[in-house]
Each structure stands twice: as structure tokens, then as C-alpha cells.
């Protein structure tokens, strides 16, 4: 199974790299509304994944024969505040989480600094969770904000 995850990740990385999804200019073009490649990619991905998910949940099973089980993400105020902070970071770096790793693979040295920042940011969030959960309107620690 380990190899399957590595292969799926490699294919995902290859697609992100060659499609512009991990490219600084394409990301800025998306936000400047001067290039629509990324809207096409995300739109097409959702347009195919949505019916696929529906069919798989309704009629399908996993490879091992188990029913499909998808843990839903909780609704909380962090969806808005966290989304805003992430959007600012995506704009500044031109990378969302997957493409940070893809850019490192491509040889973009500065992407290592983005990864360092992201890990420190996630560490501050996790360590500080008990203190910020209440003021920021987040679920209980055991539940978390949503995985994925």
C-alpha cells in the first residue's frame, strides 16, 4: 500500500506541476482574473469528482470490500477566518499546500522557506489550540477543525 500512496502522490505532483497549478504566474493570473487555467482545472476536477463520489458512495465499495465511509468536516467559524488567512498566504507564495512540495521537487529553492513557514504555522496552531479554540469558535480538541 505504501507504494500505491507514493505513486498516487507522484502522479498528482506531476499533474500539478505541468498544469500550472504549482506555477507562481498561473496563480497570480487566476487572482488577477487574467488567466483562467486554474478555474478550468478546479472546475473540471469538481465536475468529474462529484458524480464519481456520488456513484462510489451509492453503489461502490472500497478495494477491500468495505463500504465507503467519508468523515465530514465540521462547520465552524474557523472556516471563514482560516480561509481568509490561507488565501492571503496562497497569494503571497503562489502556492497552496500540495504545490509547496511540488515546487521543492522541481528545484525551486524558495519553496523550502514556504514549507518551513507552513510547518511553523501549523505547529503554532496545534500547540495553541486549547487557548484559541474558544475565542475563535472552534470545535473541541478531540474533533479538530477538519482533516484533509
Amino acid at each position: 500500500m505504501l507504494l500505491v500512496y507514493v505513486i498516487l502522490g507522484t502522479l498528482f505532483g506531476l499533474v500539478l506541476s505541468r498544469s500550472g497549478a504549482a506555477d507562481y504566474n498561473f496563480i497570480q493570473g487566476m487572482f488577477l482574473l487574467t488567466n483562467f487555467q486554474l478555474y478550468g482545472i478546479i472546475g473540471a476536477a469538481v465536475a468529474v469528482t462529484a458524480p464519481g463520489l456520488y456513484l462510489l458512495k451509492r453503489y461502490g465499495r472500497t478495494l477491500s470490500g468495505a463500504p465507503i465511509s467519508i468523515e465530514l468536516k465540521p462547520l465552524h467559524r474557523g472556516n471563514v477566518t482560516g480561509g481568509i488567512l490561507f488565501g492571503i498566504g496562497w497569494s503571497i507564495t503562489g502556492m497552496c499546500p500540495g504545490p509547496i512540495l511540488v515546487n521543492i521537487g522541481e528545484g525551486k529553492i524558495y519553496a523550502l522557506a514556504a514549507l518551513a513557514g507552513a510547518l511553523v504555522g501549523a505547529a503554532i496552531f496545534g500547540v495553541g489550540y486549547p487557548a484559541i479554540a474558544k475565542p475563535l469558535g472552534l470545535p473541541a480538541l478531540a474533533r479538530g477543525t477538519g482533516d484533509g
Partner: peptide, 11 residues
């Protein structure tokens, strides 16, 4: 930018 991404996505 990475700090915003790490903290923001997890929030």
C-alpha cells in the same frame, strides 16, 4: 506566506 498557509489551512 508559509506561516499564513500553515496556520490558515489548519484553522
Amino acid at each position: 506566506g508559509g506561516l499564513f498557509i500553515g496556520f490558515g489551512t489548519r484553522l
